[in-house]
């Protein structure tokens, strides 16, 4: 993987739907998690950093705080899911200036789903179930389960 070489895939879960994400840095892990959320909403089963991503039409500043990076990742994805539900916008770009143990902040770019595909799946929520954020050698890893 290069500097932005993150990837994600869906995993088997009887009742719900999980994803596993790998990235070269914690910052890229959060970016990858956001793209994975968008991908799952669009009905995709896996994804990776694209050389020519869909361009954002709406940009927002976002800053969140949490007790640890696992809860922070869930809160980050919840915020993005809420934007999709309430404004029909999916994340297409993210520029995170700060990702730490207890704070994430940066600019997030959204587009209408039609620019990236079609929202095929309703996600009820991002859960804490089986949640993991860890460093495995050179790579960062996250597992997140969505309720659908």
């Amino acid at each position: 993987m290069g500097d932005a070489g993150w990837r994600w895939r869906t995993i088997e879960h009887t009742g719900d739907l999980g994803i596993e994400v790998e990235a070269p840095s914690l910052e890229q892990l959060f970016v990858a998690g956001a793209h994975a959320l968008a991908g799952v909403l669009l009905g995709e089963e896996a994804g990776a950093a694209a050389s020519e991503p869909v361009k954002a039409t709406v940009w927002r500043e976002l800053a969140l705080e949490g007790p640890d990076r696992e809860v922070l990742l869930v809160d980050w994805l919840r915020e993005l899911l809420y934007v999709q539900i309430s404004e029909d916008l999916v994340l297409v770009e993210a520029e995170l200036g700060e990702v730490g143990e207890s704070r994430v902040a940066g600019r997030v770019g959204f587009a209408r789903p039609s620019a990236a595909g079609c929202v095929e799946r309703e996600l009820k929520a991002v859960t804490y179930h089986e949640l993991e954020v860890s460093q495995r050698g050179e790579e960062w890893f996250a597992r997140i389960v969505f309720d659908i």
Binding site: H13, G15, D16, T127, Y128, H129, V145
Partner: peptide
């Protein structure tokens, strides 16, 4: 019963 999140379904 099947695997849910937290509590089983």
């Amino acid at each position: 019963i099947h695997w849910g999140y937290g509590f089983p379904i």
